[in-house]
Design a protein around this nucleic acid. Structure first.
Lengths: 228, 228
DNA sequence: CGCCCATTTGAAAATAATCAATGGAAGTGG
DNA sequence: CCACTTCCATTGATTATTTTCAAATGGGCG
């Protein structure tokens, strides 16, 4: 599973035999020329559910969550977007979710209209974006497996592993609340908390503070989380 | 949620403001010129997990499932592919799952190499494929919500609704076993069966036979299934 | 320093899984 | 053509996991 649905960076390092060709790094550079830097405060929204999806975003700094409210008031978090992640690529005409800044956030904003023009000039930009979408699909599939067939502990373990892989460090920052994690993993806040406590008691993780932890025994964590 | 991850037909009927332009119906016609018809017996595989992903497929007739085995032997079904659905669009260099024919099946097979050539000649083909991928992402997100936050009954109800929408009929054919449905919804066979029985007892559905049922009270089913 | 809110922890209740047995339909071989 | 076999579905009883309800703890911020 993955913490962020759309993640270009990993992909750029993989060789690709498949259709649409290899992801051109220059695709991103071309994109950046038409992007605008936007800064947002914590708890503000990049956009709301139902807004016209006129922009893509890419997170430069900070963390963003995408939420969807269910009919009965339950909340589902579709993804956590961290530095490097694209937001909104999967939107059609309107955004199907609200995107909220969990921290103060810096994002690049790309006009989809301009991107269309750019694509007609540089087809590799499309290739680049398609690669990102494919990654998104891949992550989504993994996450479905997680949500469908994993126990609470397995979900939490694989969530931490994903964050650890992104951080390239045993230290993990958790900008989100326990409730956020629960809404992301399909668990309650309490169950998430209990899983954390158990991992702590078993010496698999260590908590610096509520929003910062370190993986002590990675092998044990992988044992718990790598069911998929 | 959706029964099939990749579904082009619905999309072609939606207006699209967004990037990559409107889905060109002619994109599909161009594709078909480079496709090969393939027929497969029940229980045979289109491809195996780890195979080089050299082809996309589109189901013409019959039903296909994609499976992934988890480390502990559990099985996850990623998608049911019915007539019209594309298979393999989300694959990178290799297929990340096995695709198995649940019935005797007729599919179109498209060489990804040829598709690349086609795209360079007709950019709208790329647009068409991107649209399908976006649909896939959208469905995946809905399904994640289902798996993450829905009760057993809600999952089964929304599964039936999805099939009903695809069938455009109150009669639904279920080519898959109860175990298949369970592995798709993240439930056991028994729980699925109990949900069916309850829906039957409440007069919401009627069973012609095990693999054929009819929706009697659609409103009630939507009440149960439309949490998302 | 104290308040507020998120987190942690505990106990009870609900939901789904597991274990187990029965029922039924499709396909096989006599 | 029928009986047998096998596989799948259904139903029941029990167990396990997670949620829900409730209370206590603790850290951050004014």
């Amino acid at each position: 599973m993955t913490a962020a649905a759309l993640r270009p960076s990993d992909r750029a390092s993989q060789p690709v035999l498949a259709s649409f060709g290899a992801p051109p790094v220059e695709g991103m550079a071309a994109l950046d020329r038409i992007g605008t830097v936007v800064m947002l405060d914590r708890d503000s929204s990049l956009f709301y559910e139902g807004d016209a999806a006129d922009y893509y975003f890419r997170v430069i700094k900070g963390a963003v969550r995408s939420c969807k409210m269910l009919a009965d008031g339950r909340r589902h978090i579709g993804a956590f977007f961290l530095a490097g992640d694209f937001i909104g690529l999967d939107a059609d005409a309107i955004y199907p979710f609200v995107a909220e800044a969990m921290t103060s956030v810096t994002v690049m904003r790309y006009s989809r209209r301009k991107i269309d023009v750019l694509i007609s000039e540089q087809p590799r930009v499309a290739t680049y974006l398609v690669g990102i979408m494919r990654d998104g699909l891949c992550s989504a599939r993994q996450r479905m497996t997680a949500l469908g067939h994993m126990t609470a502990m397995e979900r939490v373990a694989s969530f931490l592993l994903e964050l650890a892989n992104r951080a390239d460090d045993v230290r993990i920052s958790l900008p989100m609340t326990r409730t956020d994690i629960g809404d992301y993993l399909g668990l309650t806040m309490e169950t998430v908390s209990r899983a954390f406590s158990q991992l702590k008691n078993e010496g698999i993780i260590k908590q610096q503070n509520v929003h910062e932890l370190a993986i002590v025994d990675r092998a044990a964590l992988e044992n718990l989380g790598e069911a998929a």
